[in-house]
Amino acid sequence: MSQNIKIYHNPACGTSRNTLALIRNSGQEPEIIEYLQNPPSKAELIDLIQQSGLSVRAVIRQNVEPFETLKLAQSDWSDEQLLDFMLKYPILINRPFVRTALGTRLCRPSELVLDLLSAPQLKPFSKEDGEVVIDEHLQRVK
């Protein structure tokens, strides 16, 4: 297991599964944190957001049930309140976050993880939907 790669993973999410597969396609095995079962601490969540260069609001998933019920689209929620909601309802945390020695990123789309991997891809790779990411010459398509 490579301790220098962490993925905050949801196995039910295709983007998260594709991201994990791209990491493994580089011959590395990340530390997998299934964040719905093992949510990050508040300090970890703040660090992930800050290191990724995103705003708190930018990492909230909007197409999940608590978002509408809690009326999180309203702009008057503070970052602190939004963080508390994400900690109480981890499904609100967008995914997958990946952390490596090269940085931290919210890997949407999944091929963004390639910018964080120091090892090359070992074989051609297509996403679950068939979209080619690494071609037969082991070159990144997009």
Rank of each mutant, 00 (worst) to 15 (best):
K42H: 12
L36R: 01
Q121N: 06
I134M: 09
G14L: 09
H137D: 13
D129E: 05
S118R: 07
R105T: 12
R24S: 08
V59R: 11
S78D: 03
R57F: 08
I7E: 00
A119R: 14
G14Q: 12
S41M: 07
G130E: 09
D84A: 15
I33P: 05
Q74W: 05
L22Y: 01
A21C: 01
M86P: 04
A73L: 13
N94V: 09
E34R: 10
V59T: 11
K127M: 09
L117T: 02
N10D: 10
E80F: 07
G14D: 08
E34V: 06
E29W: 05
E111A: 12
S41A: 05
D79M: 02
A119F: 08
C107W: 08
R61L: 12
L92K: 03
V64L: 04
K6R: 13
K123R: 15
Y35F: 11
K6F: 05
L70Q: 08
Q3G: 15
L83W: 06
A43D: 10
V133T: 01
D76T: 08
L82M: 10
A58H: 04
N18H: 01
N38I: 13
F125E: 02
M1D: 09
V98E: 02
Q3A: 15
I46M: 11
V64M: 05
N38K: 15
F97M: 12
D47K: 13
M86D: 04
L54M: 14
I46P: 02
L20W: 01
V59F: 10
Q28W: 09
D84F: 12
N18Q: 02
Q81R: 11
